[in-house]
Simulated scan of single mutants.
Amino acid sequence: MNLAELKKLIEMFDNSDIARLSLKQSDFEIKLDKQPGYIQSTPIVNTQIIPSESSIPTQTISSTPVSSSGSEKGDFITSPMVGTFYRCPSPDSAPYINVGDTVKKGQTIGIIEAMKIMNEIEAEYDCKIIAIEVNDSQPVEFGSRLIKVEKI
């Protein structure tokens, strides 16, 4: 569950007549209660609870990318689906691409596993890899920035 979904859930909870809400998905669990001061959650790795102005908690999930470009501008290869991103074809193999590599249109840059199906992600154009924005084995969503590139 991403931050936008959590905020929407909390907003809907806050505007409802429901006094308590408990939600569990895989390794993530959140419990909401309209009683002031009540916060209980079982977070996944790299999760932080950030207090908001209301008594309802807000939660963000953060991760450190392999190589951060430090810029929000530029061209990116984005995820076409929700799943888990892998940089290598197998755990003991070399990554498909590294920062500084030049790739051709149609070349595989990674894999996204969705529902036990491995989907190869290909470069949409000839480009140079500027930064890898996600870690190996990191969950990604539709539209997540995977690789920052410079078109050639």
Rank of each mutant, 00 (worst) to 15 (best):
Ser68Pro: 02
Leu9Gly: 07
Asp27Ile: 01
Glu113Cys: 05
Asp27Phe: 11
Asn46His: 15
Thr58Gln: 12
Ile49Tyr: 09
Glu120Lys: 15
Thr84Met: 07
Asp27Met: 12
Gln59Arg: 09
Glu53Lys: 12
Leu146Arg: 01
Ser90Cys: 02
Asn135His: 05
Pro65Ala: 00
Met81Ser: 04
Thr60Arg: 09
Ser93Lys: 15
Cys88Tyr: 05
Cys127Val: 05
Gly74Asn: 12
Val66Gln: 00
Lys7Phe: 05
Ser79Cys: 02
Ile49Ser: 10
Pro89Val: 03
Ala114Glu: 06
Asn46Trp: 11
Ser52Ala: 13
Thr58Arg: 04
Asp17Cys: 06
Glu124Trp: 10
Glu122Thr: 08
Ala19Asp: 13
Ile30Ala: 06
Thr78Val: 13
Gly110Cys: 03
Thr84Lys: 09
Met115Trp: 10
Thr60Cys: 05
Val149Gly: 02
Val140Ser: 04
Gly37Cys: 08
Ile97Thr: 07
Asp101Lys: 01
Ile130Phe: 06
Glu113Phe: 02
Ala123Thr: 01
Leu6Asn: 08
Asp17Asn: 12
Leu9His: 11
Gly70Pro: 04
Tyr96Met: 02
Pro91Leu: 12
Val103Met: 04
Tyr125Pro: 01
Glu133Leu: 03
Ile129Glu: 01
Met12Asp: 15
Glu5Cys: 15
Lys128Gly: 00
Leu6Glu: 09
Tyr38Met: 07
Cys88Ser: 15
Ser54Ile: 06
Ile121Glu: 07
Ile109Leu: 05
Ile30Gly: 01
Cys127Trp: 08
Pro91Ile: 15
Glu120Ile: 09
Gly83Ser: 08
Glu113Asp: 08
Gln138Met: 07
Cys127Leu: 07
Ile39Lys: 08
Ser71Gln: 06
Glu11Ser: 15
Ser144Ala: 09
Ile130Lys: 05
Gln25Ile: 13
Cys127Arg: 00
Ala4Ile: 15
Ile152Asn: 14
Pro89Ser: 14
Val140Ile: 08
Val103Thr: 03
Glu150Trp: 06
Glu124Phe: 09
Asn135Gln: 13
Phe13Gln: 09
Tyr38Pro: 00
Ile147Leu: 11
Gly106Thr: 06
Val45Met: 14
Ile61Tyr: 07
Ser71Ala: 13
Asp136Phe: 00
